[in-house]
Design a binder for these strands. Structure first.
Length: 259
DNA sequence: ATGGCAAATATCATTTGA
């Protein structure tokens, strides 16, 4: 079983590129973020034609998440991490007895901004959702665009990014709470090298210059970690030339599990 | 501290992203 997470930066703008990637990689579960459309605007037929079940939690223009799966989910949660959150940022599906949580964590704009306060609250409430709906003893994968670089080795220029958005101590403390709760950063089980990024700034041509951040993660509980074979960032997708469609500013990250 | 690029809306400019 292979589980992918990918911030596509609009599923409609990226559709043919996403389909080509699916045809090539054949993942079993795909967690998408920033679909940037309403549920009824999601191009579900194209994915269903390829054998994927589609669950979306969208909104107009911004945010929005979706889970594609070869096996239909037995249970679906929306409105994560809390019922009255006005932004569509969290969906979960139970697929083959694994609970897959797909998150588009708040960006935060900059440290101290009201959006930053919302980000910290959002992450606090995520802990409450996890406590209420699952446990570290479950088969659980919490993945998505966390908008947090957990460590300085995940940042191309830690001095420039020191205590800035995506790298600030309160954000990293929230990430650490997830680990303390019982989740493991699966990528770091297989790759301890610095300089492994999943996002690059389009404006400064960060990808071409090797300047990025690792902010997209697949966190797993110990019971699921036992089945993990590999976790890797798909740089080939990001680097690929496509007819007319530009890449997202994020690369997919893929976790491979046995059976 | 600011700009650069990209996407969505229905705008010929603004908001948001990270």
């Amino acid at each position: 079983m292979r589980i992918a997470t990918w911030n596509v930066n609009s599923i409609r703008a990226r559709l043919d590129r996403a389909l080509d990637w699916l045809d090539d990689r054949q993942p079993d579960v795909v967690c998408l973020q920033e679909i940037k459309c309403l549920d009824e605007q999601f191009p579900r037929a194209a994915f269903e034609a390829r054998g994927y079940h589609v669950e979306t939690y969208g909104q107009k223009t911004y945010n929005g998440v979706a889970i594609l799966s070869r096996t239909p989910p037995t249970e679906v949660f929306r409105r994560i991490p809390w019922e009255d959150d006005e932004q569509a940022r969290g969906i979960a599906c139970r697929i083959d007895d694994v609970l897959i949580v797909d998150l588009y964590v708040v960006n935060g704009k900059q440290v101290g901004d009201p959006k930053y306060t919302y980000k910290l609250e959002w992450l606090d409430r995520l802990m409450d959702w996890l406590d209420a709906h699952t446990s570290p003893d479950d088969l659980l994968c919490v993945c998505g665009d966390y908008n947090i670089a957990p460590d300085d080795i995940d940042v191309h220029d830690p001095v420039a990014w020191h205590e800035r958005i995506l790298c600030s101590t309160p954000e990293r403390e929230r990430f650490q709470r997830l680990l303390d709760w019982g989740l493991v950063d699966s990528f770091r089980q297989f790759d301890d090298r610095p300089g492994q990024y999943s996002w690059w700034d389009m404006r400064t041509r960060g990808f071409e210059r090797g300047q990025g951040l690792r902010i997209d993660h697949l966190l797993v509980t110990e019971p699921l970690l036992e089945a993990a074979l590999d976790c890797a960032i798909d740089l080939d997708e990001r680097a690929r030339e496509h007819d007319s469609i530009k890449p997202s500013d994020h690369a997919p990250v893929v976790l491979a599990l046995e059976a």
